[in-house]
Design a protein around this nucleic acid. Structure first.
Length: 476
RNA sequence: CGAGGCGUAGCGCAGCUGGUAGCGCGUCGCGUUCGGGACGCGAAGGUCGUGGGUUCAAAUCCCGUCGCCUCGACCA
């Protein structure tokens, strides 16, 4: 009992103090540490490994869609930003600028990219000459900087890692299709790799990306019922091709302005994983992206043959492509159980003299704490099965959590009550900015996304005829 | 940027009616343990965030400053 308490004190209670729980977990599991400059974070090996797994899964999907990876410069001339009026207005407040280099004041200040539409647009205008050059699809994995006022590891940091895809098309239809296809790709990735169910759809004008014609989002519900924008896909129309002069000679012999898109997901996805699946014991990582999918804890390790058997099992599992850790430290088994659970490892194998003699292994799954004894024979297959089952279980659990917390409201009081109880609230909207602002003012909730294909009688704010249904929630 | 809280050993804290720093965990060494945070013995580790002031004397009192965390306004 006393021992149990000792562990529980390590991290805050997830349901009592969620923000503190989050901070405790990311630091204690060594995902991140704070950097010396305000709002910066060091992504430690355990956290970066998740990012690498995300990159691998996404790159495979991008390639299938004909997207190529490239790299564009970190520094962008300030003048580029001013070419698209809305874009500069949206980003100016949070851009960090280099004014001195080589000991001299620069003739033109250089922005540290907050996003790369401007420089990629500039380059594309050089590269695109003919309709035969289209579509052009590039992606870059890079860091960007946005000088935010308040920050939190993974969720909002001054500097973060992301991928930004940029495509150029000859027609509006192609560009719109690309925007939708990428949104769909993100959704499939979020659900199948991260086990995070998402709601996709369009953002309101107020929430639209600065310079876009339309912004689409995927919104995920976190443990506390708040929403997290987990990825965006923008249809930029001809806004950037106008500003950066991206035009091509079409097959009818005339010059035409291109249509562009951009889309991105960031290291914020790691925050989404943590806040979606985490529980009172710490992280719970989906097997597809978990740095360690399976940990082997030897029992009575000094007894003859135990370590050897563990190593043999590890080799066998690794041979089958499973990411395995074997914990041979001097800590007690109980200590290791708690530690690896906090680190979110999906499956734990306990292997001791009794098991070895019986030709078995004791497997514990992280999602529901069930333990099963499985034969050591065909261990790789049964562990793979178990991992797949955990992956599926996490998605189902998250989906149930979310679906139980989506409600409808007819008026402001209903929206307020809903978001205060950590719900996603669907409500009718007349479509005017005043009503949207009023909801934010009175409930601290924002319009997350249009609920597509749904209709309502009246606007929950003004009572006029509703044109749309909106999902409102408080958000990170 | 507004409101609150916190800076003392790697981490968590005590010390704050001034007298020259302590506890728990962790770390290191040796040994015994091992199926849900084991134990014994020994050891290392701190210019008390920082600058100034008051005083014979400051972790402690006063003023400034920097940083971090939480909650709001702005954003992935």
């Amino acid at each position: 009992m006393a021992k149990e308490n000792q562990f529980v004190e390590q991290i805050a209670n997830i349901d009592v103090d969620f923000p503190q729980w989050y901070t405790d977990v990311v630091l204690k599991t060594k995902l991140v540490d704070y950097g010396p400059v305000k709002g910066t974070m060091v992504i430690r090996p355990y956290g970066y490994a998740i990012w690498e797994n995300i990159q691998n899964e996404m790159n495979a999907r991008f390639k299938k869609r004909g997207v190529e990876n490239a790299y564009f410069p970190l520094l962008i001339p300030m003048s580029y930003f001013t070419k698209e009026a809305e874009h500069v207005e949206g980003f100016a407040p949070e851009v960090a600028v280099v004014t001195v280099a080589g000991g001299e004041e620069l003739a033109e200040p250089l922005a540290i990219r907050p996003t790369s539409e401007t420089i990629i647009g500039t380059m594309c205008s050089k590269w695109v000459q003919s309709y035969r050059d289209l579509p052009l699809k590039v992606n870059q994995w890079c860091n960007v900087m946005r000088w935010e006022k308040t920050t939190r590891p993974f969720l909002r940091t001054s500097e973060f890692l992301w991928q930004e895809g940029h495509t150029v098309h000859s027609t509006a239809e192609d560009a719109e299709n690309e925007t939708q296809a990428m949104l769909e790709l993100y959704k499939e990735f979020a659900e199948n790799c991260l086990a995070i169910p998402v709601i996709t759809g369009r953002k309101t004008e107020k929430e639209r990306f600065a310079g876009a014609v339309a912004t689409y989002t995927m919104e995920a519900m976190m443990h506390d019922g708040k929403s997290l924008q987990a990825g965006t896909s923008h249809y930029l129309g001809q806004n950037f091709s106008t500003a950066f002069d991206i035009q091509f000679l079409d097959n009818d012999g005339t010059h035409k302005k291109a249509f562009t898109t951009s889309w991105g997901v960031s290291t914020r996805l790691i925050g989404a994983i943590i806040m979606t699946h985490g529980d009172e014991r710490g992280l719970v990582l989906p097997p597809v992206v978990a740095p360690v999918q399976c940990v082997i804890v030897p029992i009575a390790a000094r007894k003859g043959g135990v370590i050897e058997a563990c190593e043999a099992l590890k080799t066998k599992l690794e041979g089958a492509g499973i990411r395995v850790a074997l914990d041979t430290t001097d800590n007690s088994p109980g200590w290791k159980f708690n530690e690896w659970e906090m680190k979110g490892v999906p499956v734990r194998i306990e292997l001791g003299p009794r098991d070895i003699e019986a030709g078995k292994m004791l497997c514990a799954r992280r999602d529901n704490f069930e333990k099963v004894e499985l034969p050591l024979e065909n261990a790789a297959d049964s562990i793979k099965e178990l991992l797949a089952s955990v992956q599926k279980g996490l998605l189902e659990k998250a989906r149930k959590h979310r679906d139980e917390r989506i409600i409808y409201a007819d008026d402001m009081a209903g929206i307020l009550a809903g978001v205060e109880a950590g719900k996603f609230v669907k409500a009718g909207w007349c479509g005017c900015r005043e009503c949207e602002d009023k909801i934010k003012e009175e409930t601290a909730a924002t319009a997350r996304v249009y609920a597509e294909g749904e209709s309502a009688e009246k606007c929950a704010v003004c009572g006029k005829d509703a044109k749309h249904v909106i999902i409102y929630a408080r958000a990170y």
